[in-house]
Structure formats: structure tokens, C-alpha cells
Design a protein around this nucleic acid. Structure first.
Lengths: 204, 204
DNA sequence: CCTATGGACATACGCCACGTATGTCAAATA
DNA sequence: TATTTGACATACGTGGCGTATGTCCATAGG
């Protein structure tokens, strides 16, 4: 077995391409990133790019997939070490709201990916949303959350959190907006809970 | 007073430019719309475009402004003729969820505008969101909604509704997803209501 | 060990599209 | 009627994407 096989070097350049693209897309944005300059920064040419990813969109898809995978792993870690299922769900939502404030995530995943890769990118095709849906499904089966469509709940929550992350990032008042958003989120999530037996159904 | 003054004709071409661009952006999307072809369809050249709107982004901003104004007017009509304040708020949210399913709105406002005009476009700078915030503010003052930050609540709701509109549009099962989304929305909105005196505070 | 094949890139080309600079003509104004 | 201003059209330069073509090296097979 040779020390460095051909497949290894190939995977290296792929990873390097994605890493440099991730940085460029995250800072300059997708449209303002030239494939000539970008590949030069990676020490390659456009030939390597189109060989591996087909076109500019394919590169963006690869970058989004990597960012999404990392985000999902971080969120799974949060919801995993929770004693109560509801707490895991709640903490995961709060964690996502905090993480989605990162400029790279907003720019690449929430802005560019949606426009370039079509409206289906976030939140369909996103591991973050799929995991959230699974958690909601478990909560519904356990009777903690009211009997609703798990997909609908997951998308509603995901949408509110992403939009809130933009709002928080717009403000320059530190974490003041984050606190406000978390308070409002708390009540909206509470509304999803299945009513206990001795609790009267809400009127209106 | 001449029958058709110069300013009238100018406004005509402006309106025609916006109308044709609105159609093109709504069907082909922003990126795939050539300014050469588009202006030709309007019976003009690119000279007229750059004279009135500065650049392609300026044209998109004008189109978004028009679409948003129309949407806001339709929503104001809904929330205006409601006997109870809460009903007006609730119906407005439901109405927006139904309207946001339109392909033109999704494509132009929710997809392209966010990426091209920056992340601040929807929902800041959008009349829809500003009106929703005002309604929430009134409900908070009236004690119907819990004491929260109206901006945060409005953005959370707006985000969930836009995301849900994409999810509904992705499905081909008619209005089944709309019904599911409305059910989940109902509970999330109920969670925002201020607790009445004889009602115990939610635990957890 | 030698050859052939295929994949991993680099190089070169054409095309499209945006923005700008310049020109023209009609309307408003004095 | 002379002048100015604004509403367009025309022409040009530039940048960037995708593709076609070429080259080189690693791996497989005899």
C-alpha cells in the first residue's frame, strides 16, 4: 500500500476546494466570488473545479452540505444530553437560534443557497430540519406535543428561528435581541405542548 | 394643462418597466433574466433601465416594493374588518400564509430579494412585517398578547409563515399541507396569548 | 517490466451580460 | 426663439462562466 494513494490526493484537493470556497462564499458571497480568483487562492485553476463539481452551483451545494452537517452535529450534541425529551427539543431550538447568527451560515445557507439552489434548499434537503422533524415526531408520539404534522411544525419553527437570527444580527445591541427572541420563542413553543387532562382547552 | 405632460409619459415607462420586470423576475428569476431581452420585451433598451433605476438591483428593489405594497394592502383589508383584535391578528397570519404560496411572491421577494438586496430585505424594509409588528404591539398594549418585544414576535411569525409557504408549495397534495400548517400555526399563536387571571401559568 | 487506459488536472476559446460613456431629440422654460 | 434639462438609444469595454481540448501521472493487466 503506497503512503499516499491517488484517491487520497483527489480527496485532498476536493476538501481544499470546498474549504477555500466556503471562506470566499461566507465573506464575499456567492455572486461576488469569481471562480478564477477563488481557484487561484486554492492554488488550482478552474479546470479542477469543473472536473469535481460540474459548475459553480455544484460547488455551492457541496459547501452547504458541509456547513449543514457540522451544524447538525452540534445540535445533535445539544439535544442528546438532555434528561427530558422536551428539554432536549427546547434547548436545541435555542441553540440553533444562537448558532444561526453566525455570518457564514446566514450568508451561505440562508441567503445564497436559497436563491441559487432553488427555494427547496432550506429547509428541505437540510439535515438540520430533518433532525428537528424527527425530534418533533418523537414528542408527538410521546404525547408531549399536540397531535400535529411533524413536518409542518419543524418547518414553522425552522422558519421562525432563521428569520429571528437575521433580526438579531441586524441589531448592534449585543445580545439584547437574542434575549427578546428567546422569550417570544419560549411562548410559541409552549403553545405546541399537548394540554394535560386537568387543563382546560384554550378558548378563542 | 396639456393632455399628456412629460412627467406622465415618464411615469408610464417606469410603470411599464416595473410591470415587465415583475413578470420576468417572477417566472425566470432574477439571475436568469437578461436586461437586454427584458427591455426589448418592454419595447425599450437598456438605456431607459439604467436611467430610471441605476442598475439591475435597483429594478429588483422597485419590483419588490410594488409587490410588497400590494400584499400589505390585501392583508390590511383582512385585519381591518375584524370585530375582535385577536381575530384580526389571527386571520391576517392565516391570510399571509395563503398568499405567500404564490410563485411570484416566493421567487421575487422571498428568494431573490433576500440574496441580491442583502439579508435585511425580508423582513426588514418590508411593509408586511412593519404592519404585523404594529398589530402585535397593539395586542400587547391591550393585554391580549403576553408582554414581549413586538419586533421579535413579528419576525418570528413572519419567518415561520414564509418557511411554511415554501413547504406547502413543495407538496403536490393540494391544500393538505396548508391545513396542517394552519393547525400548527394556531397552537403557536395561542402560546403568545397573555394568561388570564384564573388560568395557571404553564409549567416546564 | 512494459504498455495501455482512465482520471485529474491545466490551457485556451467563445459567448453572454452587465455597466458606462456618449450621443440625440423633444419638451419645458425664459 | 434660444437654451437647458431630462428621457431615452447606441456603442464599447470588461469580466466571468462554461466547454472543448490537451497533457501527465497513477493504476491495472499481461
Amino acid at each position: 500500500m503506497p503512503r499516499r494513494t491517488r484517491a487520497d490526493m483527489t480527496e485532498d484537493t476536493r476538501a481544499r476546494l470546498i474549504a477555500v470556497a466556503r471562506l470566499a462564499f461566507g465573506t464575499r458571497g456567492y455572486a461576488r466570488t469569481s471562480m478564477d480568483e477563488f481557484t487561484a487562492e486554492a492554488g488550482l485553476t478552474r479546470g479542477a473545479l469543473y472536473h469535481h463539481f460540474g459548475d459553480k452551483q455544484g460547488l455551492l451545494a457541496a459547501v452547504v452540505e458541509q456547513i449543514d452537517a457540522e451544524m447538525d452535529a452540534r445540535l445533535q450534541a445539544i439535544s442528546a444530553d438532555a434528561q427530558e425529551p422536551w428539554q432536549g427539543f427546547r434547548d436545541r431550538c435555542r441553540g440553533y437560534l444562537a448558532m444561526a447568527r453566525e455570518a457564514e451560515y446566514q450568508r451561505v445557507v440562508l441567503q445564497d443557497a436559497r436563491a441559487v439552489l432553488g427555494g427547496a434548499m432550506p429547509g428541505a434537503q437540510l439535515q438540520c430540519v430533518a433532525s428537528l422533524r424527527a425530534i418533533v415526531d418523537q414528542l408527538i408520539v410521546a404525547g408531549v406535543v399536540a397531535p400535529l404534522d411533524a413536518q409542518a411544525v419543524a418547518r414553522l419553527i425552522h422558519g421562525s428561528l432563521t428569520e429571528a437570527s437575521f433580526w438579531i444580527a441586524e441589531g448592534d445591541d449585543g445580545d439584547a435581541r437574542l434575549v427578546q427572541a428567546l422569550a417570544a420563542l419560549e411562548l410559541m413553543l409552549q403553545g405546541l405542548r399537548a394540554p394535560s387532562r386537568d387543563e382546560p382547552a384554550p378558548t378563542g
